[in-house]
């Protein structure tokens, strides 16, 4: 829980600030009054304003670490199963993993009718990785930040999917794949599709191009924003419920119920969001493979 002299809004802001490492521009006055020298300085940001001043040349250490860490957890878990995968009788853990694989495989088969060895592993990675990132949302909001605080780390956000960088990073990955396969499969047809759809007339080429490109960009945008929005909102509510605990003894019981209720509901949300991201990725890539 937050310190005694902290207001609720301080508490919320603290919980929503990423641990940022970046380059402060030259001449920037830091929180303690010191001035950044020529050529800027690579430092841990102290608070949101410094992080904002860093602009693009910064990295969210916590998001990145948790995201890659969970990716490694995913890889390790599935790699272990892959190594001892056999056609014999599967044991408990192998069974569970194979159930997920089977589920993803079925979904891909239902949606994607082309032949592409990338789609299924891509979907599996997206589904499990996003699920794990979302799962961090169910860890009580104070545990990790407080522990990190004790270790001297000022800010810490453990849910990578509440960081738009992470969600956009993934959806940009998907966009790159969409573009790659569109060009690979359709070649010049892809340009024609962009230029001559929906109005098949040379005069309308600029209009068509504009509309199609917006439509194309809308795909990763909607993917990223949907995931980000859901997870951010969910985390925000967890933080608000946590803040409610500090509102006095009388609020403890309702806050406890809210916490449990929202957490149970959130189990559904995190799974659903991972699933939606996966399915839409498959759908978009399947569209990229189809000639109109």
């Amino acid at each position: 829980m937050a310190g005694e002299n902290q207001t609720v809004s301080d508490y919320i802001v603290h919980h929503l600030t990423n641990l940022t490492y970046g380059k402060l521009p030259a001449g920037y006055e830091r929180y303690d009054g010191s001035i950044v020298g020529d050529g800027g300085a690579w430092v841990m940001a102290h608070g949101g304003t410094e992080a904002a001043a860093m602009g693009f040349t910064a990295i969210h250490v916590d998001s990145m670490a948790w995201s890659i860490g969970l990716g490694i957890v995913f890889s390790w878990m599935f790699y272990r199963v892959a190594k001892k995968a056999s056609s014999g009788v599967p044991s408990g853990f192998v069974n569970a993993i194979e159930m997920i694989v089977q589920f993803v495989d079925n979904t891909v088969r239902d949606t994607f009718h082309g032949r592409n060895p990338l789609i299924a592993p891509l979907s599996l990675t997206i589904f499990v990785w996003i699920f794990l990132m979302n799962l961090m949302d169910l860890v009580p909001v104070d545990i990790v930040p407080e522990l990190m605080m004790l270790l001297g780390v000022e800010y810490h956000k453990i849910v990578p999917s509440t960081d738009p960088n992470i969600t956009f990073g993934m959806s940009i990955g998907v966009l790159i794949l969409i573009l790659f396969y569109s060009i690979k499969v359709k070649g010049f047809g892809f340009a024609r599709e962009l230029a001559l759809n929906p109005f098949n007339h040379p005069l309308f080429i600029p209009v068509n191009l504009f509309m199609e490109i917006v439509g194309l960009l809308a795909k990763p945008f909607s993917l990223a924003l949907r995931l980000f929005g859901n997870m951010y909102a969910g985390e925000m509510i967890f933080i608000l419920i946590a803040a409610l605990f500090s509102a006095g003894l009388a609020w403890m019981v309702p806050a406890g119920f809210l916490q449990i209720g929202w957490a149970i509901f959130h189990i559904l949300v995190i799974t659903l969001q991972a699933f939606i991201f996966m399915v839409l990725t498959i759908v978009y890539l399947s569209m990229a493979h189809e000639d109109h």
Binding site: T20, G22, A51, A52, M54, G55, F56, T57, A58, I59, H60, S63, M64, S67, I68, G71, F74, S75, F78, Y79, V81, A82, P117, L118, P121, L122, L124, T125, I126, W129, D163, P164, N165, I166, F168, G169, M170, I172, G173, I176
Partner: peptide, 24 residues
């Protein structure tokens, strides 16, 4: 803020997808 994390995540994304596709 949108920053280098974005690029990092894109790279990580392709890395894990590649790993999954190759070994898992």
């Amino acid at each position: 803020n949108i920053n280098l994390t974005l690029i990092g995540q894109v790279i990580a994304f392709f890395g894990f997808v590649w790993f999954c596709m190759k070994f898992v």
